[in-house]
Design a protein around this nucleic acid. Structure first.
Length: 1018
RNA sequence: GCGGGGGUUCCCGAGCCAGGUCAAAGGGGCGGGCCUGAGGCGCCCGUGGCGUAGGCCUGCGUGGGUUCAAAUCCCACCCCCCGCACCA
């Protein structure tokens, strides 16, 4: 028996060290053989030693991982008698090692899986590997070229031994290599995975390949896959598109679509084709700008003659236009001529504009001086330097005829916003950088708030933003407008060539723009659970925003499109419904089904229930029952109950996942829930291989063990917040887990003791903890759940043990500790298994029944009693501190008399209706003769009581009201020895305030209030 | 720029939706005490300021506002993180 509280916490570990000194654990010896000899002092030979005051985590974790595997407890088979729960983690991409970010997301899934399993669900948590895409192939290329950065990343971040590098130049080898290491890491984390269903993607896995072929046949049948063209950033020298990572300049720059307005050149069939983002301003056009110093061409473009820059002609040719350059000339040639406004045929002079860049869009710009700063500036510059006009033989008088035309109304400006702003900002001329700034301001303002004036015909009175798309469509229909793609900023390829936009022909697209498809996806989002709820609007936003997605590429690894095999399904498009494949992977292995047996009709039957299983089975040489079993297994596990990922996947993978499910399956098979979490930071910075703060799972596990890694990650954050991984924190969590382990073992030895209020209190608060952890897990709030299960329960026990001064009640403590271990099992499964075994429990804690809160154990009197003791202890401490006495000789407590309690309870009642009114309470109290006799005293008391009451939570008020008068005298008398010990007093005396025999030299008793006994310290 | 999420006491983080329970949970770190042969572990106390009786003052990105009362509600501003398309 423990002699006192200090011994409970202070001495047992050294004792354990003494007991086990000399036992050295060799990890290679495996489960059950960790010691040189069987411990004679521990009753069970297989339990873990505590080596050097610390656990041998590695040996302990390997032991339980092996036992789980041997017992095959995570292999989930359909069982109609149990509710199922199918949870998934997006298979990781195998271009490198798994890192703590993967571990974080997967640990959340695993903790949820383990929780649900303990709740009695038949839980399936499968795992697979993503090989699809060009990234791995790209890495191999870089490796072949001996790119030093690539070698550095592979050898340092991914810790590939240099001698392996040669082998990894083959993409399949690289994928396989990282898959092997990844699998080891996943196992070491103790994830409760059913490995029978493991696979990897691409044509390298013929079964999966069949599945993707089937999926795309279905999508095509449904009209979800269509052919079309697509703009990409293109390098004319490399003849290939240029992704963000292949650029020297222009990261993040994407193609944008310009509107082209066609102005007929007066007395000619040719059009001056001006490019703009603001076609609505056509109503305010006053003249045309060409750069007189650069070259232009006249070209046949789709049967029309266009005047544009030669660069533009080249770009248009890459955008699916038929382009034939007829002649080339300098811009100066057209100066002083005129063209016609496409809207109303007004004649517009063509003037020299040196700001016009032939490299940008068409090199032709129309002028709207009222609303475009550059246009106003260029006109102003010409007026100031009429000689520059004369140089082209233009009569400067032409400028006098140009009046700005106001066509957009915008608050805070008059008729000519561009002019006002230019003057206000003091922009010098068209070469002043401030011109750009002014342009941005006007554009933004007019786009969002601008209203078109009556001059704008059918669009008058409308907001620019609202009408723009319609206007473009109308102009195109009338044949006065066209469009072209252009990059809003310079992009330079790795090879040094300037890029432009190319429109790729005959691409295969997933038609995410389809309104009917979007609608179904929205419906799915609306009906599913989303953790955290804040992510829901994000999904809806993304679905709304999606355009068609090019779903196939010609490079890298993947599954060829069945009807056009030179195209491979790209990586985000072959990972959308594969969770269904997990459901049949078990049978494929068990029955040794060959890939060619997974025909379209077989999979139609399995996943869609189409056709006659007997006939189909016969045709492919399978037993009918096998086919039926696969169908049943699919229907058993589907739909997906939870898919959890990091938030970066919301706008892509998770949304695809939703789109494809709603396309292929009826609503009852749509996903039930998605979880989204933050991205792991390492020492507060985003993890990056290049930056060198990349933390592989294998390293974390090696240093801290699986349980500590899991807990440190889960304690980091929940919701969409980003958790931070730091060594300091991981170390601290590991130490906490070790203390948890030692404390549980020590407490399990407790025997004897008495059952009283502290025991009732402990069991009562434990029920609240169980409830809180359970509720948090249901919402996937893993941080709240773990922190409650771990720290809050610990604090409860801490108080209890302190309160019992080292004499805990064996059975109660044991019960508490068993519950504690169960609550911790989803998070720190290895150490909990070990404890479970050491506690002498049968079976795996992983399969133990999750605790349920027991209403019968909830004990208001005990909880309020302990609250009182805590409060008194705190107040005593405060008083002693202020008095600056080292060791008080004696402390006296005086509990409130019953008339005060009457007033207190009345005040509590009054507080139910909001802020209590002192007057009203008094009036009602005065009905009672006992109180009426003390009216004066009562009045000041009630004021104080109302203050007290408003200082506690409404729930607490309700509890106290429900409980009624607490027998404070009994509670405190029972606790007096404890209080005396805590404050270091010789004795603590407790009296009723109206006890005539009380010891009360300073006459303090009258200050007593309910839950606040009066105190006298000497 | 657009969309999403945030800014809380030394650090991480709860609280904010449903205003008073909040000097503000929990953890970490740090300081002191106890325990120990010593260390680690554990336990207790402290960790904005003041205080010779359980209390008072200041305080939750910045600036306003609503209210008897605001970390919590409203407005404006500043700052940080994530995603933005052929890429996993």
């Amino acid at each position: 028996m423990m002699a006192n509280i200090r011994r409970v916490f202070g001495s047992f570990i050294p004792l354990c060290i003494a007991m086990h000194n000399g036992y050295k654990v060799s990890p290679s010896e495996g489960a059950g053989k960790f010691y040189k000899e069987s411990s004679t002092r521990l009753s069970r030979p297989e339990v873990m030693p505590i080596a050097k005051g610390q656990l041998d985590w590695r040996a302990l974790e390997l032991k339980w991982q092996r036992r789980w595997e041997e017992a095959r407890i995570f292999e989930a088979n359909p069982d109609p008698n149990r509710p199922k729960c199918f949870v998934t983690f997006p298979y990781p991409y195998m271009n490198g090692l798994l890192h703590v970010g993967h571990a974080f997301t997967a640990t959340r899934v695993d903790a949820y899986a383990r929780y649900k399993r303990m709740k009695g669900f038949n839980v399936l948590f499968p795992w697979a590997w993503h090989w699809t895409g060009a990234t791995i192939a790209g890495q191999c290329e870089r490796l072949k070229r001996k790119d030093p950065e690539m070698i550095r990343i592979l050898t340092q971040a991914d810790k590939v031994p240099p001698e392996e590098l040669d082998r990894l130049t083959d993409p399949v080898e690289m994928a396989r290599y990282f898959t092997e290491r990844g699998r080891k890491a996943v196992r070491r984390m103790g994830f409760s995975v059913d490995w029978r269903r493991e696979f990897y993607t691409t044509s390298q896995h013929p079964h999966y390949n069949r599945f993707i072929e089937w999926q795309y046949k279905k999508l095509r049948e449904l009209g979800c896959v269509v052919r079309g063209t697509h703009p990409v950033v293109w390098c004319p020298s490399c003849q290939s598109f240029v992704g963000d990572h292949d650029r020297l300049e222009g990261e993040g720059v994407r193609p944008e679509e310009f509107t082209l307005m066609k102005f007929k050149l007066a007395g000619s069939d040719a059009y001056l084709v001006a490019a703009t983002f603001r076609p609505e301003t056509i109503y305010g056009v006053t003249n045309m700008w060409l750069n007189p110093d650069v070259e232009y061409v006249e070209a046949r473009v789709d049967g029309e003659t266009w005047i544009i820059s030669p660069q533009a002609a080249e770009k248009l040719a890459d955008q699916g236009r038929s382009v034939q350059v007829l002649r080339s000339f300098r811009g100066s040639e057209l100066m002083g001529k005129s063209c016609l406004s496409p809207i109303d045929g007004r004649e517009l002079p063509i003037l020299p504009g040196w700001f016009v860049d032939p490299d940008y869009a068409t090199g032709v710009v129309y002028s709207v001086p009222a609303h475009a700063p550059y246009d106003y500036l260029a006109l102003r510059d010409l007026k100031r330097q009429p000689e520059r006009l004369a140089q082209f033989g233009i009569d400067p008088a032409v400028l006098d005829k140009i009046e700005p035309i106001s066509m957009i109304e915008v608050e805070g400006f008059g008729d000519y916003p561009a002019i006002e702003l230019v003057e206000q900002m003091g922009v010098k001329d068209q070469y002043d950088p401030k011109a750009e700034e002014a342009t941005k301001i006007i554009y933004k303002k007019e786009f969002h708030e601008g209203i078109l004036k009556p001059i704008c015909g059918p669009y008058a009175g409308q907001v620019v933003r609202a009408v723009k798309a319609k206007l473009i469509e109308d102009f195109k229909a009338k044949g006065i407008a066209d469009s072209m793609w252009e990059l809003p900023a310079r992009v330079v390829c790795r090879c040094g060539t300037k890029c432009h936009v190319k429109l790729l022909q005959d691409q295969w697209f997933l038609k995410y723009s389809d309104p009917a498809w979007k609608e179904k996806a929205r419906e799915c989002v609306e009906r599913m659970k989303i953790y955290p709820e804040a992510a829901r609007s994000w999904f809806l936003e993304v679905i709304d925003w999606y355009l068609d997605w090019p779903c196939a590429r010609k490079m890298g690894l993947g599954t060829p499109l069945p009807w056009d095999p030179e195209w491979l399904v790209e990586t985000l498009s072959d990972s959308t419904i594969y969770m269904a494949f997990y459901t049949i992977m078990r049978a494929i292995r068990a029955y040794n089904i060959r890939p060619e047996q997974l025909t379209e009709e077989v999979l139609d039957y399995v996943f869609l229930g189409r056709g006659d299983p007997g006939e189909i089975a016969g045709r492919v040489g399978l037993e009918e029952h096998v086919l039926r079993e696969m169908r049943e297994e699919f229907l058993y596990w589907y739909p997906v109950d939870l898919r959890n990922s990091a938030k970066e996947l919301v706008p892509n993978h998770l949304t695809f996942f939703i789109f494809h499910h709603v396309a292929i399956w009826p609503p009852e098979l749509w996903p039930r829930a998605v979880g989204v979490n933050g991205m792991v930071m390492v020492e507060k910075k985003p993890m990056s291989k290049r930056r060198g703060n990349f933390v592989p799972v294998e390293d974390a596990v090696e240093l801290y063990g699986a349980d500590a890694t899991r807990c440190a990650l889960l304690l980091g954050a929940e919701g969409m917040d980003d958790p931070d991984w730091s060594d300091e924190n991981a170390r601290a969590v590991k130490a906490n887990l070790e203390s948890f382990y030692n404390l549980v073992l020590e407490l399990a030895k407790a025997s004897g003791g008495e059952f009283g209020r502290p025991e009732r209190w402990l069991l009562s608060v434990l029920q609240a903890r169980i409830k809180a952890v359970t509720e948090a897990m249901e919402e996937l709030k893993t941080r709240t759940a773990l922190s409650t299960a771990f720290y809050e329960v610990w604090n409860d026990l801490r108080w209890y043990l302190r309160r019992k001064m080292g004499k805990p009640h064996g059975p109660t403590v044991r019960q508490a500790v068993e519950t504690w271990v169960k609550l911790m099992a989803p998070f720190a499964p290895h150490i909990c298994e070990e404890l479970w075994e050491r506690l002498g429990k049968e079976g795996f804690v992983s399969l133990a029944k999750w605790p349920e809160p027991d209403e019968a154990k909830i004990d208001l009197e005990a909880e309020e009693g302990e609250e009182l003791v805590k409060g008194v202890l705190e107040d005593l401490g405060e008083v002693i501190k202020v008095l600056k006495v080292e060791k008080p000789r004696r402390a006296c407590l005086y509990v409130a008399s019953s008339w005060k309690w009457k007033a207190y309870l009345r005040a509590l009642e009054a507080a139910r209706e909001g802020r209590p009114d002192v007057g009203a309470i008094m009036r009602s109290l005065m009905q009672d003769p006992e109180l009426k006799a003390r009216a004066k005293e009562a009045a000041s008391l009630v004021k104080q009581l109302v203050k007290d009451i408003m200082d506690i939570s409404p729930e607490e008020r309700e509890r106290r009201l429900k409980l009624g008068q607490l027998d404070e005298l009994a509670v405190l008398k029972e606790a007096s020895a404890f209080l005396a010990k805590e404050v270091g007093a010789e004795e603590v005396l407790v009296f009723r305030e109206d006890d005539p025999d009380r010891y009360d030299p300073k006459d303090r008793a009258k200050l007593a209030r309910p839950y606040r006994p009066a105190i006298y310290v000497e």
